[in-house]
């Protein structure tokens, strides 16, 4: 901190002041005084005008339970598990890759082996337990991307609120069931 070495800079020295570029700060008029009070009054009136204009424009609310915002086709809502349309077998083979990809760790898969006479899925194994804890899910869609069989996709349903956390753990049966289409889809170009 000694200034004897001559290398330290002195903020008051002329050379220092010359070396820096001084920018004048743009300031508004003085807020005090009669002028300030007058301007404040004017601004207040302008504010009143602005709010009144909003009143006249009327509400923009979408009244949610009665009206719904349409979602885009790629909207990531509640998951769906799929079956093959021809054979009716589940596409999911219980490989757990979705669980591995899940950053929220909300998917639990317990696999089991198919019995030849009573097949559940197309492969050797199937998901005996497939649960998604939707209270944890962040709807990132990684499970959909990770799935090697397109067995899980993200649907459009976003109405999943419930009264019990336990009810938010969706089982395989719930995910396989055809979901009630409650959400309008945005049409082309909308």
């Amino acid at each position: 901190m000694s200034d004897g070495d001559g290398n330290g800079f002195d903020p008051k020295s002329a050379s220092y002041l010359d070396s820096i570029e001084v920018i004048e700060v743009q300031r508004g008029p003085n807020p005090g005084g009669v002028g300030g009070a007058y301007r404040a009054f004017g601004e207040t009136l302008r504010g009143l005008k602005t709010t009144m204009a909003r009143l006249i424009e009327g509400p923009l609310t979408i009244e949610y339970p009665e009206e719904k915002t349409p979602v885009y086709p790629r909207f990531r809502g509640r998951h769906k598990l799929h079956k093959f349309e021809d054979s009716g077998l589940e596409k999911c083979v219980g490989c757990s890759l979705c669980a591995a990809a899940c950053p929220a760790d909300c998917i639990r898969v317990v696999a089991a082996e198919n019995i030849p006479g009573d097949r559940v899925s197309a492969g050797e194994r199937y998901a005996a337990v497939y649960e998604i804890n939707l209270s944890r899910c962040i709807f990132c869609g990684y499970c959909e991307i990770a799935c090697p069989f397109d067995a899980i996709t993200m649907g459009h349903d976003y109405e999943m609120a419930d009264y019990d956390r336990g009810d938010l753990i969706f089982t395989k049966e719930m995910l396989l069931a055809e979901p009630i289409e409650r959400t309008p889809l945005k049409s082309e170009g909308e």
Binding site: G94, C95, S96, A99, A100, V109, V110, A111, A112, E113, E124, R125
Partner: peptide, 9 residues
């Protein structure tokens, strides 16, 4: 251990 778990489980 067949189909019981995955390495990340």
């Amino acid at each position: 251990y067949r189909f019981r778990a995955r390495p990340w489980d």
